[in-house]
Amino acid sequence: MNKPIIDFYFDFISPYSYLAATQIKSFEIQHEVTFHWLPVNLPRLMKQSGNISPVSVKNKALYSLRDLKRWATYLEQPFKMIRPGSFDSRPAMRIAGALEGDQRTRFCVTLFEAIWSGSVDMKGETWLTEIIESSALPRQWLKLDSDAFEENTKLALKTGAFGVPSFVLHTPSARPELFFGLDHMNVLARSCDLAKR
């Protein structure tokens, strides 16, 4: 392993995962690392880890909405909040799991941007088809189907993850290390730089 590898656990229903995803390309260049995009079933991950959704705690839900808007402004990214439970991400996660390498990255970046920028009506049943067609992604990807995201969920649990975005840093000289949340990407970056010294 010539450079650090980071497992990026995410679900398209997570706005914090979206904001984290917008930073990955520049992160890879700046810190000379490679990200592996690993879709997971967030509701299952939270349930099996004993975590609860922010929307179940009123003050936490209100804070999270303000916090997301602050982060989007800070990162200069478009953002439109979607009511939790408005769409089922599993069909998209099945496609993501079936793709590999650059194709998976391209698909995930495109999906995240379309979903959370507000460019697609996520209440409609055809949102996934609309995103693929409007983004010039291969239409045959709609036929892809994989349950890899369920296996990734089990793997994430084993690493100690309890939500997303979660990052697991792999380096040649240390045990894998878990980092949780968009707000820990700076700490993750420091760990990547230290690992190369």
Score class of each variant (00 low, 15 high):
N2F: 08
K3N: 04
I5D: 01
I6G: 03
I6M: 02
D7A: 14
D7Q: 14
S14C: 15
Y16R: 00
Y18R: 06
Y18F: 14
L19Y: 15
A20S: 15
T22W: 02
I29T: 01
Q30N: 12
H31D: 00
E32L: 12
E32V: 13
Q48H: 10
V57A: 05
N59R: 12
N59E: 15
L68P: 01
K69M: 14
K69C: 14
A72F: 02
A72V: 00
T73V: 02
P84H: 02
P84G: 08
G85A: 04
D88Y: 01
D88R: 07
R90V: 11
R90F: 07
M93I: 06
R94M: 13
G97R: 05
G101R: 13
G101D: 07
D102R: 13
D102W: 00
T105A: 08
L111A: 11
F112D: 07
I115E: 13
S117F: 06
G118K: 10
S119Y: 00
D121T: 12
M122Q: 03
W127K: 06
I131R: 08
E133A: 14
S134V: 06
Q140K: 13
Q140W: 10
W141G: 13
F149N: 09
E150Q: 13
E150K: 13
T153I: 09
K154W: 00
K154T: 05
L157F: 14
T159F: 15
S166I: 03
F167D: 10
V168Y: 01
T171L: 07
T171H: 04
L178C: 03
N186P: 02
N186V: 13
L188V: 13
L188Q: 11
S191K: 15
D193A: 15
K196L: 07
